[in-house]
């Protein structure tokens, strides 16, 4: 049923990603952490063609003013900010972080992420649900970072989230699409965009996620930690575009046995 709805959309040419009523041409979202310096980050954002980037909220450090991050980001006119709630240990702290992020950015987007265990950084499903519900009711465009759990994803859709962002693998691990089968189940039932967030290492994994039916990919470490972040940003943009184009074109059905591409009869007879 879902795949029919999706195909219909693409047939009428609705190729833009829509999050909370806001249209995006790019289906690649970038995280801004871990870059060696601000200039490298800005260059990677520009190379990626992204229109949405995440930022984190932290105490102002008078010894190391962070104007060098805010001011250059503010200059990127086609790029919207999505503050995250990283550092929040529960729903209450995440809601507060989201409100601060909205005050500071003027942006209605929020990436709800609550991962109390620093060892694996796995999202807390219960607290994430509670925070997402409250923030969606408060008018935020809520994109929760979640375990690849189709039941949770559906409940987040029901409380008004603009998308769900299941993890491919642990944050920063480069583990790839280890949750692919669960993400397929999420996609199958979801009426809101599904965005793979965390774990991607290679552009081919982003392409695979899009071929599977994901609507976008959120990438940070794979780009920031590459030898050439701008080059990798460009490569991920191509990977996402390739995978999305392939899904729209429709992959051929799989067969258990060989199906000849050349005629097998009338050979030299």
């Amino acid at each position: 049923m879902k795949s029919e709805v999706r195909n219909q959309k693409s047939e009428v040419g609705t190729q833009k990603l829509i999050l909370g009523g806001v249209e995006f041409t790019s289906r690649l979202i970038l995280g801004t952490g871990k870059f060696s310096d601000t200039q490298t980050m800005i260059q990677a954002i520009e190379a990626s063609g992204t229109e949405l980037v995440t930022v984190a909220l932290r105490r102002f450090n008078r010894d190391k003013p962070d104007d060098d991050l805010c001011a250059p980001l503010a200059k990127l006119k086609n790029v919207k900010l999505m503050p995250n709630t990283s550092g929040a240990m529960n729903a209450k702290e995440a809601v507060r972080a989201a409100q601060l992020g909205r005050e500071l950015s003027g942006s209605p987007f929020v990436k709800v992420e609550i991962h109390p265990n620093p060892h694996h950084l796995m999202p807390d499903a219960i607290e994430t649900y509670l925070a997402a519900k409250e923030l969606a009711a408060d008018g935020f465009i809520v994109l929760p970072y979640i375990p690849a759990d189709p039941v949770l994803a559906k409940k987040l859709e029901d409380v008004g989230c603009a998308a769900v962002m299941p993890l491919g693998a642990a944050i920063g691990s480069g583990g790839g699409l280890s949750t692919a089968e669960m993400i397929k189940l999420i996609i199958r039932d979801s009426n809101i965009p599904v965005i793979v967030d965390a774990g991607l290492r290679a552009p081919s994994e982003a392409a695979r996620a899009m071929e599977m039916g994901c609507d976008a990919c959120l990438v940070n470490s794979a780009i920031a930690a590459a030898n050439d972040p701008s080059g990798m940003a460009r490569a991920f943009a191509l990977g996402v575009k390739t995978g999305f184009a392939a899904r729209q074109a429709g992959l051929m059905p799989k067969s258990e046995v060989a199906v000849a591409s050349s005629p097998l009869t009338s050979f030299l007879s």
């Binding site: 801004t32 105490r59 991050l69 944050i171």
Partner: peptide, 10 residues
Amino acid sequence: VEVLTFVGGG
């Protein structure tokens, strides 16, 4: 008082 700003984050 907490004085907060944006930093890089994923």
